[in-house]
Write a protein that binds this DNA or RNA. Structure first.
Lengths: 210, 210
DNA sequence: ACTCCATTGTGAAAATTATCACGACTTCTT
DNA sequence: AAGAAGTCGTGATAATTTTCACAATGGAGT
């Protein structure tokens, strides 16, 4: 595909760069150096230059980067020209938070449909997004390639299988369960309890510096 | 401090191992191999053995690991013998979700106090946790070393400064803002929009395999 | 036009992380 | 009791990621 040469570590930082470039642009700034960007996003300036360099020479020596140009470049690189539709499965506390969360601000990714097993919730609109019953997944989930999984851990595997059957490509999994999928499907885990425990561990076991 | 020799990548996986060991223990299993564990947590078995080996020889050749022993070991390593109190700042959608989230299940980390600027919310108990006004931070936030930050991005810096003044050690930042703190304070960022964008990027630009 | 300064882009080196592969030892089977 | 099977712990290697450091070059000031 496109550019398999771009390191994963770099790819993960792209959306971050994109957002800050957007901010700068809105502030009317039209020029930025890797050093300034570094202070804003807390990534070493050499790393930023290296990241950018995978896409070619985007800046000018002695000058820095043109904000508008860079922004346009990343917009197309991140496919922000077209809208990406996302489904949310599991309208509990966390799911509801995402439905109300404004993902679209600098961003062409939208949650367009939600599912839950609770008939209380089915039929409602939360944050402007319709909630359907989980049994309607098969019928309603067409052409959507990305799902956010915010169901109880016990349900994670069953729902994942349904999503896989339905041809999903990527899952953002907020469940503590480590779900099993065919290898062509990409899963990113965000495990809130693990993150919190890891932070506590670092605080207790790593000394004051770095 | 303790063991600065343990790689950060390893440290981040410890809570994950801990949780699965807990599951196994509750299922009455008393023996586990790195291979089984690998399938459960989706981490290469050699990586698991290497991770464990930083803490010494915890297993037996030809046998595997004793679940109870390993669990006990990690419990003390992760300081799960004592309770860690955490404050939550910002009782919006996401903050509310965390207050209702059962962090304590296999876990001695507890959100014990919450703060918000909205007087509507102040005085209430959400998920059994009292919500105070943000102006009471100074008065009420004693001895708490870890904070979860779920305020609007625009407020992030101001609140962070207050937390820093108050002597916080670690912040789990759900804000899109990249906050600035003195270098002895540890910040972990969980940036939901970035995670989602990164997932979409990977789907579009990395081919079907790995 | 000339000089000075800022900043990029990138080779090279360092640091970190993951994986391979196998000797050593344990348990299980017969 | 002996042999087979399973599994750890780890040296060595590979892969990935970060950082250093500097030549090259564009821009700004005079």
């Amino acid at each position: 595909m496109d550019q398999n040469k771009i390191p994963q570590a770099t790819a993960k930082r792209l959306p971050l760069y994109y957002r800050f470039l957007n901010n700068l642009n809105q502030q009317g700034k039209n020029r930025v150096s890797s050093k300034e960007l570094s202070e804003a996003v807390k990534v070493d300036s050499a790393t930023i230059r290296r990241d950018f360099s995978y896409f070619g020479a985007l800046g000018k020596k002695g000058y820095g980067y043109n904000v508008e140009y860079l922004l346009g470049f990343f917009r197309s690189t991140l496919d922000q020209n077209e809208i990406t539709e996302v489904a949310l499965i599991g309208v509990g506390n966390l799911g509801t938070a995402f439905l109300n969360y404004n993902f679209m601000k600098n961003n062409n990714i939208r949650i367009t449909i939600a599912f839950d097993a609770d008939t209380e919730k089915v039929g409602k609109d939360i944050g402007g997004i319709p909630v359907h019953h989980i049994d309607e997944l098969d019928e309603k989930l067409n052409d959507i390639k990305v799902a956010i999984l915010t169901v109880p851990a016990a349900e994670a595997d069953i729902i994942t299988n349904k999503l896989v059957e339905k041809g999903i490509s990527g899952i953002l999994n907020f469940t503590p369960a480590r779900i099993t999928v065919p290898k062509h499907i990409r899963v990113h885990h965000i495990d809130l309890a693990v993150e919190l425990q890891a932070l506590v561990y670092f605080l207790k076991h790593y000394s004051l510096d770095n």
